[in-house]
Write a protein that binds this DNA or RNA. Structure first.
Lengths: 139, 139
DNA sequence: CTTGACCCCGTACCTAGGTACGGGTTTTAT
DNA sequence: ATAAAACCCGTACCTAGGTACGGGGTCAAG
């Protein structure tokens, strides 16, 4: 029989805030569920999995917009494994780019801290001097 | 004599939007400049360097809040090189943490795409299956 | 049958870092 | 002298991903 879930029950079951559920509905990540005559939402138990799907995809760095796309792929009968794989591959490229950007920043910062003994007055601090001095961005 | 700059001139000289200058002023990153009797702001030429400082610090991953702190350090007579170095070191730790997080994500995504041949129907796609299946977060 | 917990909705608020708009002065160039 | 350009201010808007609030209806236990 598996009784339908009320919003709060779904939220607890999925480990998210009630408001988050309504937010996802507004964003099109959760389909509008049937309503009781009183207006109360009635979620099928499967909704828990859908929310967990969203949370897991989020933890892999997908944005809600992208997750919406993944969820649509899941429903589309023409979707092949291939398309899904492609999304994941794109996301890897994304993540790698972010890592590369951060590494450049790390390197630049390291160069600065290495050049700074930590002694002496701020007037000669290589870090401040760097920030104060005109130069083509090293990044 | 070095004539003071009007807001638009400062913006052009520093390569930012006029609105950005007013925004920085509201945020306390730029001190309120003297005004002409008409209300027009009159910036000393040094303001250009201050804005460039902000832009460079931004490119090193500092937030505006942190940059405000750096600018205050610069003015504080008690600041030593040491304190500045510490800020940069903290930021490196920050950046490294972000890189580590992204690497975990990359690894998880790579594991998924590696496990997916790209052939076959979505029903058996290891990526979707992973997202759909309950499991302790691997991240 | 009442009371408290839960649900509804719309809207506002939050962080970060700006950008844009609109209506009213002032400056500047012709 | 007049018109365009630049400036002023306050406020609203933007992305992302929610969280919070307030007023009102509903549901279930005692």
């Amino acid at each position: 029989m598996q009784a339908p879930l009320k919003t709060g029950e779904l939220a607890r079951a999925a480990g998210v805030n009630v408001e988050t559920i309504r937010f996802y509905e507004r964003k099109g990540l959760l389909p509008e569920p049937p309503r009781r005559s009183s207006g109360y939402r009635e979620y099928p138990i499967g909704a828990v999995r859908r929310i967990r799907f969203i949370q897991r995809a989020k933890s892999l760095g997908f944005t809600l917009r992208e997750i919406k796309g993944l969820l649509e792929l899941r429903v589309d009968p023409d979707t092949t494994c291939d398309v899904v794989r492609e999304r994941a591959t794109e996301k890897i490229a994304d993540v790698r780019q972010k890592i590369a950007d951060l590494r450049k920043i790390e390197k630049a910062l390291r160069k600065l801290t290495d050049s700074c003994s930590g002694n002496g007055p701020k007037e000669t601090c290589p870090i401040l001097v760097h920030l104060e001095t005109f130069q083509e961005s090293s990044l």
